[in-house]
Design a binder for these strands. Structure first.
Lengths: 167, 167
DNA sequence: CACTATTCCCACCAATCTCATAGGGAAGAT
DNA sequence: ATCTTCCCTATGAGATTGGTGGGAATAGTG
């Protein structure tokens, strides 16, 4: 008889995990970037357009306001606007505002780490990884995304069909 | 009188978070890579050398065995060995084995996402990000790290002093 | 054979994080 | 005044993280 197959229970907590908060924040910001800039946009309108839970989004917009990325206006005909031009807000800005540092290892930022023995060269690896991630996320603005014109280096990466395969 | 300053409570859950599991797994694998290959190494010896909680490490080594990265031997004089040459095991292999996919957005892998409206071009961005992360993590083997010889592209990134600054 | 060493497997735990929901207060517009 | 909209706090279920502990299986040794 066949041996009982053991379930291989794969953990699916990706090291690079873009949270719902970040995803929603970027999409909300894109919605603001795409809108005409004279009138503020209501949270409810963004929530509906982008299919984001309304109250959850309110909290995120609030964080972005505290972080200086958007401004808000209360009362009838109130809403949110970008605080700066869409070309002057990067994805990294948004991530850092709503979710903290881009890269951490065991909860601390790479430069605070110290390794010993054969793991000594692990630190430069994490540093290089972070530099690489920064290069992308700090190099792409809301305007780049909204106008469908990613910087050429980024666009090249996305144009490689292999990049779309799951491993 | 001065207005009361509101605490800006920053969330510190980095999007790219190398977990303790991954950090420990890579360090353990490096310890194995650095050792002479004829005798297996005990979990306890690795735990002590790399300052990793022993029982926690056992679970991680077990995952790596199931994932085919290491082999194990029970009983007196037992322990662990790398299942392949150190040059044939990449950091990405280890991460995928102990922590799942490299990159995910809201828990799913980028190709499964669908965006609408001004967020349409967000997907290529996440794809490019993932490709970039892959390039680093799939391009660095245990041997590269243990011999302190990162691939030139990676080493270049780490050699830039700006890469060591926290933003 | 008994004994010891070591991996292997399972259950458990506390703290934290994620992704929300609910209710009402504050401020601005009409 | 009234209505609209943002702003704040509290609550909560469920998952994840980073562990710990107890024993069962397996291999070598006297």
């Amino acid at each position: 008889m066949p041996a009982p197959v053991r379930e291989s229970t794969v953990r699916d907590t990706s090291p690079m995990r873009i949270s719902a908060r970040v995803d929603y924040a970027v999409r909300a910001a894109l919605h603001l970037a795409a809108a005409r800039q004279d009138a503020p946009i209501k949270a409810e309108a963004i929530a509906e357009a982008q299919d984001i839970p309304h109250k959850f989004l309110e909290g995120i917009l609030n964080d972005m306001r505290r972080g200086g990325l958007v401004t808000s206006q209360r009362g009838g005909n109130g809403g949110y606007r970008l605080a700066r031009a869409a070309g002057a807000i990067t994805v990294a800005d948004i991530i850092r505002t709503v979710d903290g540092p881009l890269v951490s290892v065991r909860g601390v930022r790479p430069p605070e780490l110290s390794y010993d023995g054969p793991a000594r060269t692990l630190l430069p690896l994490w540093i290089a990884l972070r530099a690489n991630v920064r290069e992308i996320l700090e190099g792409v603005s809301l305007e780049d995304i909204a106008s469908d014109a990613l910087p050429s280096g980024v666009a090249d990466l996305a144009d490689d069909p292999a990049a779309w395969d799951n491993p």
